[in-house]
Amino acid sequence: MTTHSTQSAIPIHGESLEYLAFTLGHEEYGVSIQKVQELRGYDAVTHIANAPEFIKGVVNLRGIIVPIIDMRIKFNLGTPTYDQFTVVVILNINNRVVGMVVDSVSDVITLTPEQIKPAPEMGGAVDTNYLVGLGTVDERMLILVDIDRLMSSNEMGLIQQHAA
């Protein structure tokens, strides 16, 4: 298994890692629980002019201006709907606080290295650079997102620009 230069979410040497499982559309995803600061319901956001569509806006979270990103829009998974199940996952990534809108959150799953398979090549349909791999637990399969890579990409630099 390859390792990344960032403090990656790939377990090494038999250690288990915990992932917060969330849904987007019909798929289940996972993000390292170490990056999760808190979970919140979806509230109204302050929209920012000329921001990319996936940046829903910003919220004031205890004095910190937090950009809110809709992952369904980011991953081209159709038009998002916001209801009582919609959750904003507040993440702390490289000392930046970012909110990630997901359809729902289910639970925290512990995965061992043996339960994580490399992400298959998708032929450009999906950018696999942002994926840690696929985690399997019984009949469940989680698409594990390397949130550090996703949120430190050039595109995400726009978030900071528009939130400032």
Rank of each mutant, 00 (worst) to 15 (best):
residue 56 K to A: 14
residue 7 Q to F: 05
residue 92 N to E: 13
residue 39 L to K: 11
residue 144 L to P: 08
residue 79 T to L: 06
residue 8 S to L: 01
residue 51 A to C: 06
residue 147 I to C: 01
residue 74 K to F: 09
residue 125 A to Y: 01
residue 159 I to L: 15
residue 36 V to C: 14
residue 43 D to H: 11
residue 137 V to K: 10
residue 42 Y to G: 05
residue 78 G to M: 07
residue 57 G to H: 03
residue 159 I to F: 06
residue 146 D to R: 00
residue 53 E to F: 09
residue 7 Q to D: 10
residue 129 N to D: 12
residue 5 S to I: 11
residue 33 I to R: 08
residue 46 T to L: 09
residue 66 V to R: 08
residue 151 M to P: 02
residue 37 Q to R: 14
residue 25 G to N: 09
residue 160 Q to D: 10
residue 110 T to H: 05
residue 107 D to Q: 13
residue 11 P to N: 00
residue 141 M to L: 14
residue 98 V to E: 10
residue 86 T to E: 04
residue 26 H to Y: 05
residue 115 Q to H: 03
residue 58 V to M: 06
residue 65 I to M: 12
residue 145 V to K: 02
residue 147 I to K: 00
residue 50 N to M: 01
residue 103 D to C: 14
residue 62 R to I: 03
residue 65 I to N: 11
residue 90 I to F: 06
residue 145 V to H: 01
residue 46 T to H: 11
residue 125 A to D: 03
residue 10 I to T: 12
residue 136 T to L: 06
residue 65 I to H: 06
residue 68 I to M: 13
residue 69 I to T: 05
residue 4 H to K: 13
residue 43 D to T: 13
residue 94 N to M: 05
residue 76 N to V: 04
residue 82 Y to K: 06
residue 137 V to R: 06
residue 29 Y to I: 05
residue 160 Q to E: 14
residue 146 D to Q: 13
residue 55 I to P: 00
residue 67 P to S: 10
residue 125 A to H: 04
residue 32 S to D: 14
residue 67 P to C: 07
residue 1 M to S: 15
residue 1 M to V: 11
residue 24 L to D: 09
residue 44 A to Y: 06
residue 96 R to A: 12
residue 159 I to K: 01
residue 108 V to M: 03
residue 21 A to Q: 15
residue 54 F to R: 08
residue 78 G to A: 04
residue 161 Q to E: 08
residue 75 F to H: 09
residue 85 F to L: 12
residue 3 T to H: 14
residue 40 R to V: 04
residue 158 L to C: 01
